[in-house]
């Protein structure tokens, strides 16, 4: 059951998101736009880090918001709306990749299809830094870095979301940060 807050009362980002989800649960399509403004960067960055293809990431961004609109009434406010939203994006990205590899697999072997589904199309990414990040980090590192640096999840929360130990998350995060620091310093 939602606890309705006024806009003025919704102070923190999470409170704002929960307030908007409560409006979306009442089929307020305009609230989707406001939620989009608030969390679009988080969702897109996650999708891009996972799929390494801007067109696929766009699809995930779109489908995530449609699904949020469809199922907002199922969200129970407990102060963690971003974890709920990112988990939706996570599942859509996973499904997207599976479907893409199956689609390709009609005329290619499974291995080739998987490779094609995960291939990195560097030209579709505008920022040099993001391109190099996507090239140099493995999938786990990319997910962890984006969830922490872009969405602000704590390492412990990421460990739960990705079903990994805290030690693994910290280790992968710190190694990734070291690689990215080198890249950033090269750019300067």
């Amino acid at each position: 059951m939602f606890i309705f807050l006024t806009v003025a009362e919704a102070q923190t980002r999470n409170e704002k998101i929960e307030y908007l989800l409560s409006r979306i649960a009442n089929e307020d399509a305009d609230a989707v736009g406001e939620l989009y403004d608030l969390v679009k960067d988080d969702v897109y960055a996650y999708a891009l880090s996972k799929l390494r293809n801007s067109e696929d990431a766009e699809d995930v961004l779109h489908d995530t918001f449609v699904r949020i609109y469809r199922y907002a009434s199922r969200y129970t406010p407990e102060g963690k709306p971003m974890a709920w939203i990112i988990t939706i994006a996570m599942n859509i990205a996973k499904r997207h990749r599976e479907l893409k590899s199956r689609h390709i697999s009609y005329d290619e072997t499974i291995g080739e299809a998987d490779a094609a589904a995960e291939s990195f199309e560097a030209d579709t990414v505008k920022s040099d830094f993001v391109r190099r990040l996507l090239q140099s980090l493995d999938e786990d590192e990319r997910e962890i870095v984006v969830l922490h640096a872009v969405s602000g999840f704590k390492h412990r929360e990421i460990a739960v979301m990705l079903n990994k130990s805290l030690g693994t998350v910290l280790s992968k995060y710190n190694r990734a940060i070291k690689k990215l620091r080198d890249i950033a310093e090269e750019e300067e």
Binding site: A29, D30, V32, G33, Y36, D37, K40, D41, Y44, A45, L48, S49, S54, E58, L61, H62, F65, V66, V125, K126, S127, F129, V130, L133, V145, V146, A149, V150, L180
Partner: peptide, 17 residues
């Protein structure tokens, strides 16, 4: 990291609504 990724986000607002 945050600003670089933010610069990549496309504008799908009206399409999504």
């Amino acid at each position: 990291i945050k600003t670089s990724f933010a610069s990549e986000t496309p504008d799908l607002r009206s399409r999504i609504i």
